[in-house]
Amino acid sequence: MADGRIAIVTGASSGIGRAVAGHLARAGARVVAAGRNADQLGRLADELAAAPGEIVTAPGDMTEPGYAEGLLATAERTWGPATVFVLSAGKGLPGTVLGSDPARWRELVEANYLAVLHQLRAGGAEFTRQAAADGGGQARDIVVIGSTVGRQVSAANPVYGSTKFALHSLVEALRQEVCALNVRVTLIEPGFVRSGFQEAAGYDMAWFDRIAEECGPLLTPDDVAETVGFVIDRPRHVHLDDIRLRPTRQRA
């Protein structure tokens, strides 16, 4: 259950990460909310001041060396060792192989692959260390927000999609590596979510409005947050390791 658990949520400044941090705090968890926008994190903390759980904010850049280790240290210093790590931070990039901006490729790979790989390593190492000490006596959860575009090739959005394909491979490999210690590594693959992600990444919003008309109602960040909460609330012996979450009318 989320009540009483200590959680780290990256990408908590906005969108899905913000919704996850709020959902967990309202369910009684103690949450380290991490993101790049300190002002938005502060507003989130104000909104959750009366929640059953607690929240501390940790502004920072996920691509900085030691980012994940610092979040784990913040949790332990404030409340104790974290047992939930939700990786929600990431970037988008519109365009095809020929049409996308090559000047943004490196930044995308650093944010969506290398930074997440470092977070997976840090979280996995910490949780296995804890589990070795207590014999895996409790479930520990690493939850990664992926995308349906990391499962089905899209000629319209392949550069971003390729980072999600790579990420999904890492998540399954880490699951296999740590599952014997009751460390659960879960991938959640949302389809179209109305969250502000598309605007921030520079996608064509007229295109996105057409998608919303064709496939809507679209998912909301709260839909994804509720799914995260459901996953970590399973009994220790139950692991929902890969969930695709789409608007009902979304075909691909």
Rank of each mutant, 00 (worst) to 15 (best):
M1R: 05
A2R: 04
D3H: 10
I6Y: 05
I8Y: 06
S13P: 11
S13Y: 10
G15S: 03
A19P: 08
V20K: 03
V20Y: 04
A21M: 03
A21G: 10
A27T: 04
A27S: 13
A29P: 13
R30W: 07
R36I: 00
D39S: 15
Q40H: 04
G42D: 06
G42P: 10
R43W: 11
D46I: 03
E47F: 00
L48R: 01
A50V: 14
G60F: 07
T63G: 03
E64V: 09
E64T: 09
L72A: 09
E76V: 14
E76A: 15
G80P: 14
P81V: 12
T83L: 04
V84H: 03
L87A: 07
V97L: 09
A111E: 07
L117G: 08
L117C: 14
F127I: 06
Q130D: 10
Q130R: 06
A131R: 02
G135Y: 01
A139S: 07
I142Q: 00
V143Y: 05
G146V: 00
G146Y: 08
S147H: 01
T148H: 04
T148A: 13
T148Y: 02
T148R: 08
V149L: 13
G150I: 09
R151E: 15
N157I: 02
G161I: 00
S162H: 03
S169C: 06
S169V: 02
E177V: 01
V178R: 11
C179G: 10
R184P: 10
L187R: 12
I188Q: 11
I188C: 01
P190K: 07
V193M: 11
R194M: 12
S195Q: 08
Q198N: 09
E199T: 06
C215L: 06
G216M: 08
V224P: 15
G229Y: 00
G229W: 02
I232T: 09
L240M: 15
L240W: 11
